[in-house]
Simulated assay, not measured.
Amino acid sequence: MPIIIKRNTGWLGVASKIQIKLNGQRIGSVMEKKHIEVEIPKGKANLEVTRFGSNSNKIAVKDGDVIEITSTIFYRTIIPLIIPISFLISLIPNLTYKLIIFAIFFALIVISQFFFKIFNLKVVTNKTSQHP
């Protein structure tokens, strides 16, 4: 019995695919509000997702699991802050300072995606344990 992986990450990153890894091997990808069914070897496996270097927690899955991919609170908080912080940086009168501060801010955003989990995986149900 396959597992079902549903993506529900919201509007952030809606135009890009999330790569799915099963036991460390890339097995496919999924777009926002879509799902993918995956057969897993030996009835259980380890699952994680990645996108542009960012990643998720790793979870153990078994036959019949339904897994939901969501974005983390960190990601939902930090990414929307880019626009107002960029606006505030644009108010700095000195162009050199403006460019330096913007470069540091941008670098921190990019680097943070490698150190913090951007996606969260959780088992929402197991189809084999449901009763009719």
Score class of each variant (00 low, 15 high):
M1S: 06
P2C: 02
I3L: 01
I5K: 03
K6D: 01
K6L: 10
K6N: 09
R7E: 08
R7T: 08
L12Q: 11
L12A: 07
G13L: 09
G13Q: 07
A15N: 14
K17G: 05
Q19R: 15
I20Q: 14
I20S: 09
K21S: 13
L22E: 00
N23Y: 10
N23H: 03
N23G: 05
G24H: 10
G24C: 14
Q25S: 07
R26N: 07
R26D: 06
I27G: 03
I27V: 15
I27A: 03
G28V: 11
G28N: 15
G28F: 12
G28K: 00
S29M: 08
S29D: 08
V30Y: 07
V30A: 03
V30M: 10
V30T: 04
V30N: 06
E32D: 12
K33N: 12
K34V: 01
H35I: 00
H35L: 11
H35M: 15
I36F: 09
I36M: 15
I36W: 09
I36P: 10
E37A: 14
V38K: 13
V38A: 13
E39C: 11
E39D: 13
I40D: 09
P41L: 05
K42P: 00
K42S: 13
K42E: 04
G43T: 07
A45V: 02
A45S: 15
A45W: 02
N46R: 12
N46T: 13
L47C: 04
E48I: 12
E48D: 13
T50W: 00
T50Q: 12
T50D: 14
R51V: 12
R51Y: 13
F52P: 02
G53S: 08
G53D: 10
S54E: 08
S54T: 10
N55A: 09
N55L: 03
N55T: 13
N57Y: 07
N57S: 03
K58F: 09
I59Q: 09
I59E: 09
A60M: 05
V61I: 12
D63K: 05
D63E: 15
G64W: 01
E68K: 11
E68P: 00
I69Y: 01
I73Q: 02
I73G: 01
I73M: 03
F74V: 03
F74C: 02
R76P: 03
T77C: 06
I79Q: 02
I79P: 00
I79K: 02
P80I: 11
I82A: 00
I82T: 03
I83P: 02
P84A: 04
I85W: 01
F87D: 02
F87Q: 01
F87H: 07
L88H: 01
I89T: 02
L91H: 00
I92C: 07
P93Q: 09
P93I: 12
N94Q: 10
N94G: 02
L95N: 08
Y97G: 13
L99D: 03
I101A: 06
F102I: 04
A103D: 13
I104W: 05
I104M: 11
I104K: 10
I104D: 01
F106N: 08
L108R: 03
L108A: 13
I109V: 03
V110P: 08
V110D: 01
V110I: 15
I111M: 11
S112H: 06
Q113M: 09
K117V: 13
F119H: 06
L121D: 08
K122L: 00
K122H: 08
V124E: 10
T125S: 14
K127V: 04
K127N: 08
T128C: 00
T128V: 04
S129A: 05
H131S: 12
H131Y: 11
H131K: 14
